[in-house]
């Protein structure tokens, strides 16, 4: 009993100290907003690595998810004779939920794991220590550009995901299953509100961008600098990011659309 209590206490202390380190890490890195002394160039480089190189997986996933939504939506809605509302269903599903959430999950798997592995390897090969010894703060040089790039890239990727998804839904619904194109677009136009749906979706993806980038960069920075340590940190990035995204999605949905 005493042992179990001691273990619980130790676990609690470790958790608190990790949260403390993560908080200090984020504030230290955000103070170092890119811009000075070549920082903008580093930001652009990271935007390419995190954002542009994630485009392929986001576009392909968005296309297939939109096509599946079109097919499933048509099957269900045609039972009620309301297949004309398929455009509305696809757009709202993508813009409010699937766009931000699936993009964040893809981001965690592709860019997040790469960020953790890259920074972890920089730590293991003493590159971070050598930056410190050269009088260069690794939080500003390494962490800040990656964090900011993640904050910027995620909403843009989510928008692209939703746009491609809607196009994929149109391919199936209109071009394949024969829903009237005018109804497809007009039902979408009349039901999707810019502030309530598009902006709320963007806010979600921005929150997910902050959380996923924070977890990924911190896990790399805080990892045990061995091959096993980097591997464990990369796994933690994907698991923690996915759980955080799904949990936060519920909270944000409740606040934005649940009338709370």
């Amino acid at each position: 009993m005493t042992d179990a209590l001691a273990r619980l206490g130790r676990y609690g202390l470790t958790l608190l100290s990790t949260w403390g380190r993560a908080g200090l890490f984020l504030s230290g890195a955000l103070w170092g907003a890119p811009g000075q002394n070549g920082g903008f160039r580093l930001l652009v480089k990271q935007l390419y690595a995190i954002g542009v190189l994630s485009l392929a997986i986001v576009v392909v996933s968005g296309l297939f998810i939109g096509m599946v939504l079109g097919l499933q939506g048509y099957t269900i809605l045609s039972d009620y004779g309301s297949e004309e509302a398929i455009g509305q269903m696809i757009a709202l599903t993508l813009v409010r939920e699937l766009g931000p959430v699936v993009t964040a999950l893809l981001f965690a798997g592709r860019a997040g794991s790469a960020l953790t592995a890259e920074i972890g390897l920089m730590k293991a090969t003493e590159q971070l220590a050598s930056l410190e010894m050269m009088g260069v703060d690794p939080l500003r040089r390494v962490a800040a550009p990656r964090l900011w790039a993640g904050f910027i890239a995620m909403p843009v990727l989510a928008m692209i995901f939703s746009a491609v998804g809607i196009w994929g839904g149109m391919l199936v619904g209109v071009d394949w299953l024969g829903v009237y194109a005018g109804s497809f677009w007009s039902s979408m136009q009349s039901s999707v509100a810019f502030l309530d749906d598009v902006v709320n979706g963007l806010i979600k993806s921005l929150v997910f961008g902050v959380v996923c980038s924070w977890i990924a960069v911190f896990q790399g920075y805080d990892c045990v600098p061995t091959s096993a340590g980097i591997s464990a940190a990369t796994t933690r990035t994907v698991v923690y990011s996915s759980l955080a995204v799904l949990g936060l999605d519920f909270v944000l949905t409740a606040v934005m659309f649940g009338g709370f």
Binding site: E126, Q127, S130, D137
Partner: peptide, 19 residues
């Protein structure tokens, strides 16, 4: 501390070059 480190050089065991 960072200003003081500008007056120091350190050769790490692994070299620690930026890959």
């Amino acid at each position: 501390l960072y200003r003081l480190r500008e007056t120091m050089g350190m050769l790490f065991q692994s070299g620690a070059l930026f890959t």
